[in-house]
Each structure stands twice: as structure tokens, then as C-alpha cells.
Amino acid sequence: MKQDLYRAVYCSRISIHGPPRRIADELRTILKVSRRNNARDDLSGALLFANQCFAQALEGPRAALERCFERIQNDPRHADVTVLEFGPTATREFPKWSMAFAGDPSPEANDPLAFVVFEGAFARAREQAGSAVLGLLHGLVRREEAWALA
């Protein structure tokens, strides 16, 4: 099982149109469904939403991860998917989370750090972008975990 552990990091742009409330509702639905499916499939990860973009890290057994990614690809609620990183990994970055969430669903929200990372992600240097997004997600999730413990 251990040698079959893979991680994928990708970015995409949201294609849900409507008021912030509607977007927030959709995000809640997305999270609910992904948490349920991921718990079932032994997947963990983190999702960031900012600047109308998603960044997601997904990790777990390869076959389950690939199936999950196919489901995500077939989802019309986003577009312009760019895979930043995909490959085997020794350890999980988000072992405690079926899907941690970081982000503000309102379209006015503008997290400057996320903006810089997203710009990098859609540019050409994919390898750096992959680790930058992963680092960003990790940092955010760690911060939240620390708060939750405090």
C-alpha cells in the first residue's frame, strides 16, 4: 500500500457564475461531497479557493486518486485545469484531512499571496509552481491546525 501512495497538485479556474452566496453554496456542496468520497477512498488533501481559482492537493492510493481526478475533470464547475505535480510520494502532507479547506468564497476577496502563487501556477514553470502551491496549502492548513489546537 505504502509504495502506491501518490500526490497530485492542480489549479483551475471556477466557472460558476452568480452572486457570492451562490458560489459559497456550491463550495460547501463540493467540500461535503469530496470529504465523503475521500474518506471512503482513503484520500486526503487540501483545497484552496481564492481569486476565482482553486488549488487542490490530493493524495492517496494511485488508482483511487486517478478515479477521483477523473470525477473532478468531468465537473463543469471549473475549467482551465493545470496539473502542477503528479507522482509517487513517501508521506502524506495532509494526513488528518479528508479535504481541508482554505479560502474565502466571496469574489471580492483577494489574497495577495494566493494571487502570486496562482499567477505562477498558470505560467510555464510547473515544477516550482507545484511546490509553491503545495507549500501554500500546507502553510495555511498548519496554521488552522495550530488554531484549532490552541
Binding site: 470529504r35 484531512w97 481541508a100 479547506f101 488552522e144
Partner: peptide, 14 residues
């Protein structure tokens, strides 16, 4: 400011 849900259900290994 990013929000996070600390109530994500734990993974089940069942």
C-alpha cells in the same frame, strides 16, 4: 483572510 474548517471528518481506514 482564509477560512478553514477544522471539523473535517477524519479519514476512515475501514
Amino acid at each position: 483572510m482564509p477560512l478553514a474548517s477544522p471539523h473535517a471528518p477524519p479519514r476512515t481506514g475501514e
